[in-house]
Design a protein around this nucleic acid. Structure first.
Lengths: 169, 169
DNA sequence: ACTTTACATGTCAAATACGACATGTCAAGC
DNA sequence: GCTTGACATGTCGTATTTGACATGTAAAGT
């Protein structure tokens, strides 16, 4: 059921085409929810049929821009505030980290190094995003979320570094 | 494909019945990977057919205990070390946090309070688990993972508290 | 002119996951 | 003796997700 609200939520931020939504899922939302275009286009059709979004314009290359309706906005708010959150997660990286103690030290270090490289990359990207926001002087509403991302990734980075160091000691 | 390795990984820790695996998924693995018993039993049958696990005993109430085979252990190691991790995640809570700025202040605070209560509960459970491990003096191999969980949840708790405080200021 | 790349939308079969239904075992309390 | 609850395994229809296939548009480089 979450895909529906992910799409609805992105359209509540600004009207977009399916193509733009696909990119946002890949970039901003990849650490929370993943969806490919083959899921997004059919979902847009369903949301439109349900009256939660509507077609607000057509552009070059057959592009179709959708916007959220008042009904859609009410339904999104209802879900965010009133629906009981499903706290279960699916994270292959988390699973790997959980199973890591099964590996012998050499293999384990190899996976930690790989994860560390990835986390450092993520962290750099988030810090660049934060710097961009500071530059544009606009009060970005999702600045706290970026900050949270930085903090979580910092904890992860430090933990990985400790694991690697304590093994080589 | 991850369910296969989640089950294989749990059986690499110790031989278990499908019922025990279901409980482990619910308790220890719920923040990384979720699976119900209706997924687990068919997966055990597939893994056995593939020779990655085998039946090591049958107990009371028709229970069947499976253990990992050498082939299974090799396949698990190959996946953990050599397969490229899929970093995409699925977290409804993450999605909700991402969309939170769309809410008006009163609704936003309500969702933050709800999340804070949940995080504090999680944190208490993890700290109790850590204390248990310290008591038993056994060198628990997954103690670092528990520590990471505590750190991540602490960051989340502090962030939520800041959001709530900065709004009431 | 031609080719590559990014833009842009869609469908479909196969795999995966979810929730409900179904069945049976055993111990403990009443 | 009976009932409740935890233990234990399974199936099945539906819904969701994935990856491959399919098609066309426009800009930019060569």
């Amino acid at each position: 059921m979450s895909l529906r609200y992910a799409v609805l939520g992105l359209l509540a931020r600004r009207p977009s085409t399916g193509y733009e939504l696909t990119q946002t899922f890949d970039r901003s939302l990849s650490t929370s929810w993943h969806a490919g275009h083959s899921q997004i286009y059919p979902e847009l059709a369903k949301l439109e049929a349900a009256g939660l979004i509507n077609l607000v314009g057509e552009g070059a290359r057959r592009s179709k821009t959708y916007g959220i309706t008042d009904t859609g906005r009410a339904e999104l708010r209802r879900w965010l505030v009133e629906a009981e959150p499903d706290r279960s997660q699916r994270s292959e990286s988390g699973l790997r980290l959980f199973l890591t103690p099964l590996l012998d030290p050499a293999d384990r270090m190899q996976t930690f190094e790989r994860d560390l490289a990835h986390v450092e990359h993520e962290l750099a990207a988030l810090e660049a995003l934060q710097a961009d926001q500071a530059d544009t002087a606009e009060p970005e509403v999702f600045a706290p979320q970026v900050d949270l991302g930085i903090r979580v990734n910092t904890v992860l980075r430090d933990w990985l570094r400790e694991q690697i160091e304590s093994a080589s000691a």
